[in-house]
Design a protein around this nucleic acid. Structure first.
Length: 457
RNA sequence: GUGCCUAUAGCUUAGUGGUAAAGCUCCGCUCUGUGGAAGCGGCGAGGAGGGUUCGAUUCCCUUUAGGCACCCCA
């Protein structure tokens, strides 16, 4: 295809150069073989969400701009909705594309409160939009796959342990190598910081610095903390504390014994201990999770348990799934206290990295295993009959329409990744059958009409 | 939004202030009942706008897009 020419003819009224109307790469588009793989992953995620009893919902792509801004987001990353001409009939100007699924969930729960059953367990797999400057694996339009459990007034800590269980099942089934689910509780670091007398402002700065510890290293973190006015005498203590890398029982023992007399800290330790205990009860394999006191998450609204999952052999990919507990999902909409726990998989980013690193490889560029070739145009009705036979048995089938040599048709079939080609000329038709050619092995044999479906399974 | 780098054919790259080169892809043929191979042939290019110059793809400016880092990652 020559985009310049095609586009110039279609858009000639706009006097555009062809290249000017090509899609920007920050809005991802995949080739068929890539999209087929992406859909397989989406299926795995959806299946597992449903396996745990989460119900699907979909919220509209747009929300009131005022609400999105109010949730403390970055203004410049929000895409607003508008029309080309000055149309003022509706208030479209007040709408913007959602940049995550949690804020829409909060609105949805508040709006449908009386119609929903609590605890409300929902999953949502949708595109979201953020006007970020694109970078490797970071796009302006991407899938988020979220599950959340929202409670009315309270929500047991068992729910916090169920999230890692879902994560474990999904990534195990995705077959993308060893992964590690890191678990922490925000109250621990917060309590730790206030025990050492940090002001609220300093606590935020310290959290931020700890969040980047793994990325920028100890020296840089030490420097940053000093710049932010954190006392030199406690910086090393903080860094050592957040960086503890030991088996879970040793970390819990340490937390119990480190004599930090702070209510929040002790509460966090207690919650973490319970969640860890429940995780063992749920049967999550011990080698797939650990306690990581350095997990912070940038989210303002996480208040308790937090998770971050990484691929053990590919740490550079960063977090592939994260989430946590928040005390008050719907505070913006009213005074009801609605705690929740949720996780989110940023699928597009993960998927692009999996392809880039070669952890996942694309397969065929077709979902159909069978191509019915058309050797003789006068036999088309026979080819359609074969295709219908296969389709009625649930076998995805394409029929080749162009007048090309059979050799070219087979070339097309193997390039596109079909497993079988059906070939039939007068000889086969006269014997009420077809040739079934296995394109992977090259084997070919005659098959009567009744046996075709069995041949291509 | 900030900083640095980049822009040549569908893709990957070469080269040049004076006719723009190649590999892969694609199309055709060898080959009208059998794909993956080989050979031959063919289509096709300097992001856009401006400046300097007799002449710019090459030098300069602007702009757009891409890469990386920052920011952010709810």
């Amino acid at each position: 295809m020559k985009p310049t020419k095609i586009v110039n003819s279609v858009f000639s009224n706009f006097l555009l150069n062809g290249k000017d109307v090509l899609q920007c790469k920050c809005f991802p588009e995949w080739l068929p073989e890539e999209r087929i793989l992406e859909q397989k992953i989406l299926d795995i995620i959806r299946d597992n969400f449903e396996k745990y009893g989460f119900s699907p919902i979909e919220t509209s792509a747009v929300e009131k701009t005022a609400m999105l801004i109010a949730k403390g987001s970055n203004d410049r990353e929000i895409y607003t909705l508008g029309r080309l001409s000055n149309y003022s009939g509706d208030n479209d100007q007040n709408l913007a594309l959602h940049f995550d699924l949690t804020v829409p969930l909060a609105r949805y729960v508040a709006q449908n409160y009386s119609l929903l059953n609590f605890p409300f367990r929902r999953y949502q797999i949708q595109k979201v939009w953020r006007g970020e400057r694109p970078q490797s694996g970071r796009y302006r339009e991407f899938y988020q796959c979220d599950i959340d459990v929202v409670g009315d007034k309270d929500l047991p800590l068992l729910v916090d342990a169920e999230m890692p269980s879902v994560i474990y099942q999904i990534f195990k089934q995705m077959n993308i190598g060893k992964f590690m689910i890191g678990v922490n509780n925000r109250k621990i670091l917060q309590g730790y910081f206030s025990f050492y007398g940090l002001t609220n402002h300093c606590i935020n700065e310290a959290m931020h610095a700890i969040d980047k510890l793994e990325k920028v290293g100890v020296d840089k973190t030490r420097e940053t903390m000093a710049e932010k006015g954190i006392g030199a005498d406690i910086i090393d203590g903080i860094i050592n504390f957040a960086g503890i890398n030991k088996p879970i029982n040793e970390i819990m023992e340490y937390l119990r014994s480190c004599k930090i007399d702070n209510e929040l800290f002790l509460q966090g330790v207690d919650e973490l201990e319970q969640v860890i205990g429940h995780m063992a009860t749920l049967g999550i394999p011990q080698d797939s999770y650990k306690v990581n006191l350095g997990i912070v998450r940038g989210l303002d609204y996480y208040t308790g348990t937090i998770y971050e999952t990484t691929l053990v052999d590919y740490p550079e990919i960063g977090s592939i799934c994260s989430g946590g507990r928040y005390d008050n999902l719907t505070s913006f909409f009213g005074d009801k206290k609605m705690p929740g726990v949720g996780i989110s998989i940023g699928l597009t980013r993960l998927f692009s990295q999996l392809l880039k690193t070669g952890i996942l490889k694309t397969g065929p560029a077709t979902v159909a295993p069978v191509l019915v070739t058309s050797m003789d145009k006068s036999l088309m009705s026979y080819y359609f009959k074969i295709a219908t036979l296969l389709r009625n048995s649930g076998i995805k089938t394409e029929v080749f329409f162009d007048s090309k040599r059979i050799g070219d048709q087979l070339k097309y079939a193997s390039k596109k990744g079909f497993k079988f080609a059906i070939i039939a000329g007068n000889d086969e038709v006269n014997n009420d059958g077809v040739q079934v050619k296995n394109l992977e092995t090259g084997e070919q044999r005659f098959s009567g009409l009744d046996d075709i479906c069995a041949e291509v399974r």
